[in-house]
Design a binder for these strands. Structure first.
Lengths: 288, 288
DNA sequence: GCACTTTGTGTAAACGTTTACAATGCTAAT
DNA sequence: ATTAGCATTGTAAACGTTTACACAAAGTGC
């Protein structure tokens, strides 16, 4: 060891990986759109991977660009990674075929496809939306909007939870109360005016960013939050703390999602769903 | 090629890297503290790396943890990466020795050590602070605070720019007007009260997060921004748009910093400093 | 002191490519 | 028909490890 140090010897990981037929690294495939929570998940992934002696390699898959998604998966397979993590990636059939044919384990992160046999770590979106809706109902709201969700898995799961909660509490939900979007600030800003004629007293935002968009649009129209309109966000990122009023939000444990996804993809038996919780701040009013 | 496809042949990148004595990948060493701009830089890095056929591997270096920094650099050297990018990393002597002894090119990103011979891509912090200070002076401010900077390279460069601007405009700057911190929201919140007895009319925040901290603390104390206190942020992240009032901020082009750092580390001759610009929003008042 | 187990040392093959070079086949010019 | 030049094909070494195995040395129990 002394001589090795003197000679400045440095092990060659590439040669090691070759002979071992497997690289101690985890590939994370990620959308180019940098959501403000993806780095929280990444930090969880990184931390756990570090503990387990795995490196992390990141592959961008563009912006819902199918070609780049295939490319990213292929790149991951060409190095013999010990696992592939797909971060908020909606796979198409080609993606799934590529993954299934490979011998590398893979796990979807922050997205649940609905198949038990495909590894996944995520919040339970149905439960999450149910939670948010029920929270508003308990605070006396009966006309509740839902803003900014998409048409993919996450969005539809949340709609289901919202509808179930309404139904379970004997409320009829107007389909027009559900407004699609893309989880962005801009979505929220744009959608507020569409809610005004509908007389909802509260809106669930598909993300914190949508919530802030709604909030700012409301302030511009001199609609007071929460006095005239209640808003609850989803995600619980730091932005909830810095708005006025601060945003009540269903908080996802992104760090834990990251940590657990590493365990899952490496074969440990961990629960698919990571619990969420409501953090009350100042954007919801109690109605009598 | 047809038969290769039939057989499901997939090239083995690891074997390629071994024989080529060089992996087509760039290692990015990054602090664990996920600043809201690091993913913008990363996205620039990723984009450019993709164009040049380089993969990106991310290595976390903990939180100003020297051991983990050495570890991360060593890990990068053990695979024969084509370049090492150090993202907002303050190196110690050991780090620099490790890097210099290796044959891999390295480049500091969003940090300028002050040595011409060490590759670096960053905003010109001196100029940036000068810009912010001069902007406030042109708006009639003479008592200008500076909040939240650290004692490392970036912080001291900014202080220099601030002091130069004051001096060049014949203003004396009270050393107490400079308050150290760590670029965080919490820093800003805490520091506001320290400024109150000093009668400054404007504060430059070391980051947008500090600016929001100052803003929220001011609102809590019923101090109106910008009427009673002007604030200018640094970074120009999306958070500037969503506060009330929106934050005037010196905007850094993080994406471009990322793009350029890839070019730089791969040997292209690109400029070290990426220009910044003031984006006027609503947090600065004109004083007569 | 013998057989046996344990520990240590040395050797060689393997991992899947690239690359340099030799050998072969072909084309075209003399 | 001969040969130089060129393209194509085949062969073998190399990259730096791990791992399996043979063999020697040392230790153990009877």
């Amino acid at each position: 060891m002394k001589i090795a140090k003197e000679l400045g010897y440095r092990k060659n990981t590439v040669a090691m990986d070759l002979v071992k037929q497997r690289a101690d690294e985890i590939a994370v495939i990620i959308n180019a759109t940098p959501t403000n929570f993806s780095n929280m998940i990444l930090s969880g992934i990184q931390q756990r991977a570090n503990e387990l002696g795995q490196r992390v390699i990141i592959l961008y898959a563009g912006n819902r660009n199918t070609d780049m998604q295939h490319q990213a998966i292929t790149t991951a397979l060409e190095r013999s990674v010990s696992g592939i993590l797909l971060l908020a990636i909606e796979p198409d059939e080609v993606d799934l075929d590529l993954l299934r044919e490979s011998r590398a384990p893979f796990c979807f992160v922050s997205l649940y496809l609905g198949y038990k046999q495909i590894l996944s770590i995520s919040s339970d979106n149905k439960k999450l939306a149910y939670q948010a809706t029920e929270y508003l109902i308990r605070h006396g709201h009966t006309q509740i909007g839902f803003a900014g969700i998409d048409d993919y898995h996450t969005g539809s799961q949340r709609v289901l939870g919202y509808q179930n909660a309404m139904r379970d509490h004997g409320l009829t939900s107007n389909p027009a109360w559900i407004k699609k979007g893309d989880y962005s600030y801009e979505s929220g800003r744009r959608l507020l005016s569409e809610f005004l004629p509908l007389d909802v007293t509260a809106i669930i935002a598909a993300s914190d960013m949508v919530a802030v968009g709604l909030l700012n649009a409301a302030q511009k129209k001199k609609i007071s939050v929460p006095d005239q309109l209640s808003i609850v966000g989803i995600d619980g990122t730091f932005i909830c703390e810095v708005t006025t009023p601060p945003l009540t939000s269903v908080t996802q444990d992104f760090h834990e999602i990251g940590v657990r996804s590493v365990d899952k993809v490496l074969g440990k038996d961990v629960k698919t769903f990571v619990p969420t919780k409501i953090v009350e701040r100042g954007s919801v009013r109690e109605i009598n």
